[in-house]
């Protein structure tokens, strides 16, 4: 391995970590603001102009808050759980091309940490490991709310991985590759060539599965405040809780990138316009996450299971069969 590649990768990792950690913060700001506006409120207003420095205030608070490890928790596991959540979220980002490649000082930069040929498989796999964060954290907390939350997390993640995996099979069959670069290149022919048109069912299924796996409303039952307090996060404080938080928001961003890359044409032909278009698409999907939270109620856990196994999974299978038949002929 040459040194330049090594340095480049290190730089890319650092940039990615910093940018998305910060984005998690901005994400909360936007979430609060968007939700507030939709509910005819103002949202944060006091820290900085229009409450802009709220993120800094929250950051200071999270970093300086006492790190409480309650008496009856399983210490090491309790401590490692938030790290797993955050780490898996960022690990998944390794296979995502955030931008088209560009040249700087004569050096060609690929804004992807590693274009592995099993990109999608890798992303799905790593995100699946993310299950361990809530699961271990919830089980180690010695708290009944956390335990219920852990159980729910396990069931939801395992169930919806099936849906997300099956729904992506059809697009993969069409592209014939697991690399996200290939996916992007498959859809360079303008809006008409986007996967969403040829695979609308897969798009909707994957979108629903994305909501479930990031634990967002209407599937927010893993940490449903009004019934199980903060679920697995109940006993956490300070920056440990903050890691869960960063993980959740980083996940939202990454899944937005994935959806945009697979179904909405990615960065297209790699031009600047394409890059901006990708950011626009990602932003919209992120906004959609917030939008649904303002508009929709949560579903019950049993409804969620019912929806997964009796509705979404059969549809996904049927979609694969139909796609296969169409490709065959």
């Amino acid at each position: 391995m040459d040194t330049a590649y090594f340095i480049e990768t290190i730089i890319k990792i650092v940039v990615l970590l910093l940018v998305f950690s910060a984005l998690a913060g901005f994400g909360t700001y936007f979430e609060r603001k968007v939700l507030a506006f939709m509910q005819r409120r103002l949202g944060p207003m006091h820290v900085g102009p229009y409450g802009l420095l709220q993120i800094a205030a929250d950051g200071i608070k999270l970093f300086t808050k006492e790190d409480i490890v309650p008496q009856n928790v399983v210490g090491p596991i309790f401590k490692i759980a938030p790290v797993i959540t955050a780490a898996t979220a960022f690990m998944a980002a390794a296979a995502i091309p955030f931008m088209p490649s560009f040249t700087i000082f004569g050096y060609e930069v690929h804004p992807i940490i590693s274009d592995i040929n099993v990109g999608i498989l890798y992303i799905l796999g790593v995100m699946a490991i993310g299950l361990y964060g809530p699961l271990l954290g919830g089980m180690a907390s010695a708290n009944k709310w956390s335990l219920i939350s852990a159980a729910r997390a396990a069931s939801v993640f395992i169930s919806y991985e099936v849906v997300s995996g099956l729904s992506l099979l059809a697009p993969i069959m069409m592209v014939g590759s697991l690399s996200l670069i290939d996916f992007n290149n498959y859809q360079t022919g303008g809006v008409g060539s986007w996967m969403i048109w040829s695979q609308p069912v897969a798009f909707i299924l994957f979108l629903i599965a994305a909501f479930a796996e990031t634990g967002r409303t209407p599937f927010h039952l893993i940490a449903n405040d009004h019934e199980i307090i903060d679920g697995f996060g109940t006993e956490y404080s300070g920056m440990r809780w903050g890691l869960f938080f960063i993980g959740e928001y980083a996940n939202m961003f990454f899944i937005s990138f994935v959806i945009a890359l697979i179904f909405l044409g990615g960065f297209g032909d790699g031009s600047v316009g394409g890059a901006l278009a990708l950011l626009g698409k990602v932003s919209f999907i992120f906004f959609f996450f917030l939008w649904t939270r303002a508009a929709w109620p949560d579903v019950r856990p049993d409804q969620l299971m019912w929806l997964c196994w009796k509705v979404l999974m059969p549809i996904a299978v049927i979609n694969i069969v139909i796609t296969g038949i169409v490709i065959m002929f």
Partner: peptide, 10 residues
């Protein structure tokens, strides 16, 4: 409808 209502208010 729900989505529309909140968007409109925004």
């Amino acid at each position: 409808v729900g989505l529309w209502v909140v968007l409109r208010e925004m």
